[in-house]
Design a protein around this nucleic acid. Structure first.
Length: 495
RNA sequence: GUCCCCUUCGUCUAGUGGCCCAGGACACUGGGUUUUCAUCCCAGCAACAGGGGUUCGACUCCCCUAGGGGACGCCA
């Protein structure tokens, strides 16, 4: 039996480091076993999935050299490799479950579901579906569906007993069925949920080993049940630990740069990043911390994966990247850093740069803070005639939240969003923008703010804002709460 | 709240009952090499969450407590 592994990202945002982490282990293991590594695009959330995100994901995995043997772009014998192109397959399988009584139609309105959930929470019970439509006769169920009443398909779950399965990293795990919700398998728009399509596709695509994030551990019983209902053999499961923030919580963009592009744009080289990711929850038998991807493939032993969630330590990554840079021979180093600095998006700034320069030697200093690190702040970087420290921190924090909502990362959209926030919290645009300018550029004089932000990109911008906030003393839990409230008030008054 | 997972230096980790009064790496501190800086070299700091068992012997096995994390969506 050939080993087949997969990674199934959902194209709903910027490519995440966690995806690269999981991809690395899947790919390396498949390669070691002379099997195949598959990329499947899990675009089962029609509302949030975007083509751009899919392209970004592919591109960032390619940058890391984590190429796939089968996938939406390269095809393969078990395609198609996009959930949205496999709808008839899921429909057929859902039909089968319905037919066997392993699943049932649910006609409950979203409003009712919310009510039920709230009542359960009030009674301190585990929120889950109350089984309202469980008792519908097949005839009744079919009649209502045929009459055009909207419905979802839910998984039938045993009322008692427990589910036992094996995670290859942790051993046997037992979860009471009472804890397991009657999961929606098919949404009212006819799309499958993750649980249905992932299980069906993993089987149909011949996946033999599932290496995925630990967040899936508690939904395993649903997957076990589905495999049981279909009569299929279950894959070997490996739940890799979740990458963590410094405070041990699941790595998130609010607390850490999580986008793969961020690391590329800051000049980490793929070899180093991959190497570092390979030391998260795993170690070489001989303890070596610097190793190439090929060495990783050669020595990878899934049994050596630890279940403990590792904190992503950017300082150690910096050190490792430095080691790699120093190992490059001089010509290589030159080629690579010049290639890195050769950024097409810098071209957009030409008109602004021309106005501000008489010679090329005056151009470089102007873009320095966009291409490289900005000058460090000093005591009076943020001093402002009408703003106190507290205002400035608030502005920086609100700017970060505002930028979160910008879907189209263009200077016009960025400008509009920030201006609107400034107005809402009754700052003059000039006041609101001043601290941002310093936070972004590190200087009092620089290229226009919104264009700088556009060029910097989302994560780099976020990182600068956060650095500035830290420089100003950070945000205590107490003031964080206050800011949350204030933001909430501004935001909801919008509606 | 319920369920599940986890618990070795600040951080990443080695350790699968005696080799461990716990080893390596990052960070930090001190020293050396170097015209500066960086690199490099040397040294130092620093951990088995707590409590019960099991055992001749526990970092390693079991139980409890505590702490951390995750899940509880017509998101994945």
């Amino acid at each position: 039996m050939t080993v087949r592994t997969r990674i199934a990202p959902s194209p709903t945002g910027t490519p995440h480091l966690g995806t690269a982490y999981i991809a690395l282990f899947n790919k390396a293991f498949a390669e070691q076993q002379q099997g195949q590594f598959i990329l499947r695009i899990e675009d089962s959330d029609a509302a949030r999935s975007t083509k751009k995100s899919e392209i970004d994901i592919c591109e960032s995995l390619q940058w890391l050299n984590l190429r796939w043997d089968e996938g939406p772009d390269v095809g393969g014998p078990r395609g198609p490799y996009r959930v949205s192109e496999r709808l008839p397959i899921y429909r057929e399988h859902a039909q089968q479950l319905l037919h066997n009584g392993c699943a049932f139609r649910c006609f409950c309105s979203p409003e009712r579901l919310v009510e039920v959930r709230q009542a359960q929470q009030k009674r301190k019970e585990t929120p889950k579906y109350d089984g309202h439509c469980l008792g519908l006769s097949p005839q009744e169920s079919k009649r209502r569906a045929d009459a055009g009443e909207p419905f979802v398909v839910r998984l039938r779950v045993p009322p008692d007993g427990e589910c036992t399965f094996t995670d290859q990293i942790r051993g046997e795990i037992t979860i009471p069925w009472q804890q397991v919700d009657m999961q929606v398998l098919v949404k009212s728009d006819g799309f499958p949920t993750y649980h249905l399509c992932a299980t069906v596709d993993d089987h149909l695509m011949g996946i033999t080993h599932i290496l995925r994030g630990e967040e899936w551990l508690s939904s395993c019983p649903k997957h076990v049940l589905l495999y049981d209902y279909f009569g299929w053999d279950f894959q070997k499961l490996y739940h890799l630990p979740l990458l963590r923030n410094k405070d041990q919580s699941k790595m998130s963009k609010r607390k850490n740069p999580t986008g793969i592009h961020y690391y590329r744009d800051r000049g980490y080289i793929p070899e180093a990043l991959l190497n570092y990711l390979g030391t998260m929850g795993w170690s070489m038998p001989d303890g070596r911390e610097q190793f190439s991807y090929d060495e990783f493939v050669e020595k990878l032993d899934l049994k050596r994966i630890t279940p403990r969630g590792p904190v992503f330590d950017s300082e150690k990554l910096d050190w490792l990247n430095g080691v790699y840079l120093r190992d490059l021979d001089d010509a290589d180093f030159q080629n690579r850093y010049l290639a890195w600095a050769q950024r097409a998006d810098l071209g957009k700034l030409s008109s602004m740069l021309k106005e501000r320069a008489e010679r090329f030697d005056q151009v470089l200093p102007q873009v320095a803070y966009l291409v490289g690190e900005p000058a460090p702040f000093d005591a009076d970087s943020f001093v402002h005639k009408s703003l106190v420290n507290e205002d400035i921190v608030k502005i920086l924090d609100f700017a970060e939240r505002t930028l979160d909502t910008v879907a189209d990362w263009q200077s016009e959209a960025i400008a509009a969003a920030l201006r609107s926030t400034a107005e809402k919290c009754s700052f003059k645009p000039r006041e609101f923008l001043a601290p941002l300018f310093v936070a972004i550029s590190g200087k009092k004089v620089a290229l226009p703010l919104f264009d700088s932000i556009e060029t910097l990109g989302e994560e780099l911008t976020r990182a600068r804002l956060r650095t500035a906030i830290d420089f100003l003393g950070g945000i205590s839990n107490k003031s964080r709460k206050k800011l949350d409230k204030e933001w909430e008030a501004l935001f909801s008054s919008d509606a």
